[in-house]
């Protein structure tokens, strides 16, 4: 990751800007998934949702009270609200799927979400989908399936 744009002409100068938080996200969620697995040995996923609500509420209160953050009444707020709902829906959908089926059945389907993101991003956001991105996405999805089944 330390290769500078000057020494690597194929990498965009902006790459590090999104790659850094992406890698931190991998660390956060990768560890969270292991901790959730440990927690779910002693509680149901519905009870874990209650604790997630406590955590999110605590951070929200800190932002609202401690830092004076306010929800803006702007057009984009509807997408923000939808995003919040989808965050919870993702957790519930995966929990229900894993409750009803084996990991080896659920994971290959669930791991395909970058494909759905790519399709939606091309249609809705007009992003370009290059051969490199498609190939890289396919390799990652295949790798994730191999790791988790």
């Amino acid at each position: 990751m330390s290769t500078s744009p000057a020494s690597n002409p194929t990498r965009s100068p902006q790459t590090a800007a999104w790659l850094g938080p992406s890698l931190v996200y991998i660390g956060f969620i990768g560890i969270a998934q292991v901790l959730a697995k440990v927690a779910l040995e002693d509680m149901a996923w519905q009870q874990l949702v209650l604790w997630l609500a406590v955590a999110y509420t605590t951070f929200s209160v800190v932002l609202l009270v401690g830092f004076g953050v306010r929800l803006k009444a702007v057009p984009a707020a509807r997408w923000g609200a939808l995003s919040g709902v989808l965050v919870v829906a993702i957790f519930v959908a995966l929990s229900v799927a894993l409750e009803q089926g084996d990991v080896s059945e659920v994971v290959p389907v669930a791991a395909s979400y970058p494909v759905f993101t790519a399709v939606l991003a091309v249609i809705v956001l007009r992003e370009r989908l290059t051969a490199r991105r498609m190939f890289g996405t396919a390799v990652i999805v295949g790798g994730v399936i191999a790791i988790t089944i």
Binding site: W18, I26, Y113, P114, T117, A118, V122, E127, V144, I147
Partner: peptide
């Protein structure tokens, strides 16, 4: 900071850390 088709495949790699 980045396009969804760039960022999301990378963020999908979190099972590596879990493993």
């Amino acid at each position: 900071r980045g396009e969804a088709t760039l960022v999301v495949p990378i963020t999908a790699a979190y099972p590596v850390v879990s493993a």
